[in-house]
Design a protein around this nucleic acid. Sequence first.
RNA 1: GCUCGCAUAGCUCAGGCGGUAGAGCACUUCAUUGGUAAUGAAGAGGUCCUCGGUUCAACUCCGAGUGUGAGCACCA
Length: 638
Amino acid sequence: MPKITLPDGSTREYENPVTVIEVAESIGPGLAKAALAGRVDGELVDSSTVISSDADLAIITERDSDGLAVIRHSCAHLMAQAVQRLFPKAQVTIGPVVEDGFFYDFAFSRAFTPEDLQAIEKVMGEIVKENLTVERSVMSRDEAVAMFTEMGEDYKVQIIESIPGDEDLSFYRQGEFIDLCRGPHVPATSSFKAFKLTSVAGAYWRGDASNEMLQRIHGTAWGSKKDLKLFLQRLEEAEKRDHRKLGRHLDLFHFQEEAPGMAFWHPKGWSIYQSVQRYMREVQDKNNYKEINTPQLVDYSLWEKSGHASKFADEMFSVESENRMYAIKPMNCPCHIQVFNQGLKSYRDLPLRLAEFGSCHRYEPSGSMHGLMRVRSFVQDDGHIFCTEEQIQAEVADFMTLLFAVYKDFGFDEVILRLSTRPEKRVGSDEVWDKSEQSLKDALNATGLPWELVPGEGAFYGPKIECSLKDCMGRVQQCGTIQVDFSTPGRLGAQYVAEDSSKQEPVMLHRAVLGSFERFIGILIEHYAGDMPAWLAPEQALILNITDKQNDYCRNFEESLKNKGFRVSTDLRNEKIGFKIREHTLQKIPYLLVVGDKEVENGTVAVRKRGGEDLGAMTFHEFCTLLNQDVASFGRGA
RNA sequence: GCUCGCAUAGCUCAGGCGGUAGAGCACUUCAUUGGUAAUGAAGAGGUCCUCGGUUCAACUCCGAGUGUGAGCACCA
């Protein structure tokens, strides 16, 4: 006689075991119709699940984020069924839910075309109309293997064989289609209201490049047609923020065939770059980093000693000159150790924080390059902290504080934090790994923000924290990082004299706040959709005349603002004011200063903000105050 | 690197059963001195990514290369 407690705290008693859907029916027919699944004592289940003892129950509908996940997961099955109706020889593999949608990977003799996608979508619609019931069943591993072998679904057989233990497996059937699945799923194929197949691309079986390539079809599914439309609009808006597009329109940088993966920075883009660099230099100074600069070309032997040559030789650019092999530096750490190694270091010198805006080159795989986000030539805001084991924790904590302060100035409040811990192949004792992982964990916990643990993904020399931001299409881009390294200092002979006059190896912390200037600026452009805040804007204000009678006044005003250190220019062309306003608004200049006879007479400028807001007439002094305040606020809260 | 797609004027894009191409914006010139998102007119601008092949003829068809897009793999 189960007693069901609903989310609002009310309870209902039933004579006999009931299903989720029966409970929904007893509450109301509308809810029963909308029910997609249930959550029983916190666990997601099918709406057909029988509840036989007292339980907490929530009815899941499309309004629930879990409900949306159920729809999407079921939609992946729907798509697989449609694919197999159209292409009986296509084998199914896996079809999980991803952000905003789902995908399913198929093994098929050829790639699917956009026309195929349309056909698949059409068949999906037909299956929805057929209103097939989705039924759960349970089978033993052996039965399942036999069934899929019989069906010729080799990939499913592999999946089942790789599931450990001999627990029973659950399956979902709708019409002629059956798939191995944990569920839960929607009760019937009529549950789908809005879906769309978005793209097709190759993907390796089991994510391993040595395996064959499958065909991955991506789709999206929503609780209503309206939500689907909103999503598609959101995608369109996001595309407009693409830094590659804005980089061209705003004349910031370009790429060309002769230098793949290497940006040509134009005056305006370089201005942003320089502003970011000036800012970082100041931050580093304030935080007791010593800035250095090291060679671009270093004899190959150093990379052999550091261990990078053996691991990354294919990704390093090398140069031969006078029978000597050099590598263009792919990273700065070995060079920083060379600086550390000059002169005898004492424990009193630690922690020693060296920083460099270090230009690096890496031969990134062609398919991995992406605008400014992943390039072959980039500059890191690199830094290495040489310290003792005891100092790790405080240094990591300080770094995280610094990083958040910087991100805040750039207008980023949402940072994705991840901790990558010891990989299988590693150097250093477990004790040391315990300690360094713990230091990083403590630092992460101290931020008070959620973070994700990624076991086994650390570098071979130590664990790391990665701080990522999202680009306009929701792709996660790693920016800041801090990594503990117990290995490289030793390999390259770094030592300091301890209190007991013994020689000790320092611990090295690799750290970067922005990561690379290129990627970070790419992220910034997308974050602001090109509307750079005043402190970063290449041109902070532009003075516009109405007629050429005001030219001298405009030039004098420009000169005075430049003397105050502002980035200003004039547009005195013989064009109508509306035309010039439009043009410079499209160029996203923060302030447009209009000067006509009225302003000349009163010694003012008419200030128009980027968004179109009219701030009225201002004197030189008033405008300076305004711009100074704007610049001083950085990008906080923008 | 892998799968699939794409490459035409500075930019955004049309176009053609194989007979060397067009629009809008930008650019140049002229007129216009106009108060907050496009003044009008005229002009100039292209080895249709590169190299091979097929063909009387290739920007168009085929192949290779390069770059690029989406996804996968990689990311010290």
